[in-house]
Amino acid sequence: MKFDFDTSRKSHAQGDVYLIPIVAIPAEALAQPVEAEAGKLIVTHSETGHHHIVMERPDVKMFRGMDMFRDFLLIENNPATLEHLRDHHTHAPQEIQPGAYLIQRQRQPSPEGWQRASD
């Protein structure tokens, strides 16, 4: 999937995930929307349940990316809030301005290749 970074806007980093501004969501990704779970779009899944999420909204959409490390987020109209679902060592919420974003999750090397950094 091809996309261009939008360097006029700044990234957001929350724990092990980055939201990096891009010019537009790739066309191939638009065909693969990610469903919300219990009203939440899970930006980064945590094996201990401490997900990073954006609340579901008609004008907030998430799309499947190229691999387990990358998806896309589209926020239209109004800002959305990136939240961390943990009641201890909580990564502070961030207001995300409208626009297209690459969701870039942290990875780590292993003997089997790159793996998602788990928390």
């Binding site: 360097t7 806007r9 700044k10 990234s11 957001h12 980093a13 929350q14 724990g15 980055y18 990096i20 961390h84 990564h91 502070a92 919420p93 961030q94």
Partner: peptide, 8 residues
């Protein structure tokens, strides 16, 4: 990555 608005 360093062009970051906020890091929490």
């Amino acid at each position: 990555l360093r062009n970051c608005h906020e890091r929490t």
